[in-house]
């Protein structure tokens, strides 16, 4: 990326204290919504199917099945409306973009969880 564009991103976006996540991970995005002049936090839990872009314009897309209907939402990574992100599960996938998930449903749409080896105690 252009050094000047990068400089502007650093000045304007700052850093975000989010856990590291990638495509295939299951996350909960807690974002602010304004309802009748009041602000509240709503969660959106689903699988990350892509991360796109660099710097201040980076986005990620989360997909979930809600009442049997697939719902996708794209969030700008540096949006001030994102309150926090929780990492629920780390998925084991071989691709960076999981668009094939759109054609799948039920059992075949599951993403295998990556189990981390925990160092033995003592």
């Amino acid at each position: 990326m252009n050094a000047a564009v990068q400089f502007v991103h650093e000045q304007l976006t700052g850093s975000k204290e989010f856990p590291k996540f990638k495509a295939g991970d299951n996350i909960t995005v807690n974002y602010k919504i304004i309802e009748g002049g009041k602000e509240r936090i709503q969660g959106f839990r689903g699988d990350v199917i892509k991360r796109q872009g660099t710097g201040g314009t980076a986005t990620f897309t989360v997909r979930k099945i809600s009442d049997g209907v697939g719902v996708e939402r794209t969030f700008p990574f540096f949006s001030p409306n994102i309150e926090s992100i929780e990492l629920n599960k780390v998925g084991r996938v071989r691709r960076a973009k999981l668009f094939f998930q759109r054609k799948r449903s039920g059992k075949s749409a599951r993403i295998k969880e990556k189990r981390m080896a925990v160092a033995a105690q003592g």
Partner: peptide, 13 residues
């Protein structure tokens, strides 16, 4: 130099 996008405090890009 180039283009990018910035956020306002209320989240508008």
């Amino acid at each position: 130099i180039g283009m990018t996008s910035i956020f306002s405090p209320d989240g508008k890009q």
